[in-house]
């Protein structure tokens, strides 16, 4: 998996990763163009108007017309990128969710210093949780008196996702603010205690990817990392079955 990374943006592994990159490249080209136009003028003026070269100081141009022109062109450029590209992309990535029928549902609950990952199990329902039940054997406080909780699959620092199928990730935190960051998916979202934030992603590339924390959350923040494993839908189903009810979580009879 270290081949996924370089001295630039990493490999793109989700359906919208390329859209985000394209937006970046659009902005980058505008930035570079603007910068070199400025720099060209700047360097030219410095060489041309050194003191000592015989010329009369030109006092003209107090009006600021050039500046207004530059301001106008940058706003036209920005508006074009935004209206044509950024706002629609944002709507697609952040203001829309795939239907729950087609999607894999995963819950990610961050804590100092781990990602607790939960799948609803065969019944398709997440069981109740209660902060009062949190214990190191039951990190998210599953309430086993709820029948829907019995078949939930809970694991730490590992998300398995099937290739090509949208996934809905419900993100929250037990303690402080963390931030779920999966570079290859171009996915980042703060995990905030008291909020459950739905996200979606559709993996488009098989492989194992880094899943790290991007928000300072305490002394071991740099070591709060995990893996995202994208596998074929068959392999994913097989893995989910192998983890499901047959192996009740240790806290089940607690």
């Amino acid at each position: 998996m270290s081949g996924n990374y370089g001295f630039w943006l990493p490999v793109a592994a989700s359906s919208y990763a390329r859209d985000l990159d394209t937006d970046f490249y659009l902005l980058l080209s505008g930035m570079v163009l603007m910068f070199f136009l400025w720099l060209g003028a700047f360097v030219y003026f410095l060489l041309r108007y050194r003191s000592g070269r015989a010329h009369q100081v030109e006092r003209s141009g107090r009006g600021g017309g050039w500046a207004l022109g530059a301001g106008l062109s940058i706003i036209v450029f920005e508006l074009a990128v935004i209206v044509v590209y950024s706002v629609p992309t944002w709507a697609h990535v952040r203001m829309w969710l795939p239907s729950e029928k087609d999607a894999v549902e995963v819950e990610v609950k961050a804590q100092q210093y781990a990602w607790n990952v939960r799948y609803p199990g065969p019944d398709g329902k997440f069981g109740r949780t209660d902060p009062k039940l949190v214990h190191f054997t039951n990190p998210i406080g599953l309430d086993f008196s709820d029948p829907a909780a019995k078949d939930d699959v809970v694991l730490a620092n590992e998300i398995h996702l099937p290739l090509g199928r949208p996934a809905i990730i419900r993100l929250s935190s037990l303690d402080v603010i963390h931030s779920l960051f999966i570079p290859e998916f171009r996915l980042k979202q703060d995990a905030v205690p008291g909020m459950s934030i739905p996200l979606w992603v559709k993996p488009t590339r098989l492989g194992t990817y880094d899943m790290v924390c991007a928000q300072l959350c305490g002394f071991a923040h740099a070591f709060m990392d995990g893996k995202v494993i994208v596998e074929s839908p068959e392999a994913f189903e097989a893995w989910l079955k192998s983890r499901a009810p047959a192996a009740p979580t240790p806290a089940a009879n607690f």
């Binding site: 108007y49 100081v57 030109e58 301001g71």
Partner: peptide
């Protein structure tokens, strides 16, 4: 970003036609 661009451009254009002492 518009006012920021305006200010910076005004500064760069101040150089134009000057007699610059380094």
């Amino acid at each position: 970003s518009i006012p920021v661009v305006l200010v910076v451009t005004c500064y760069v254009w101040t150089l134009k036609g000057g007699s610059i002492r380094f």
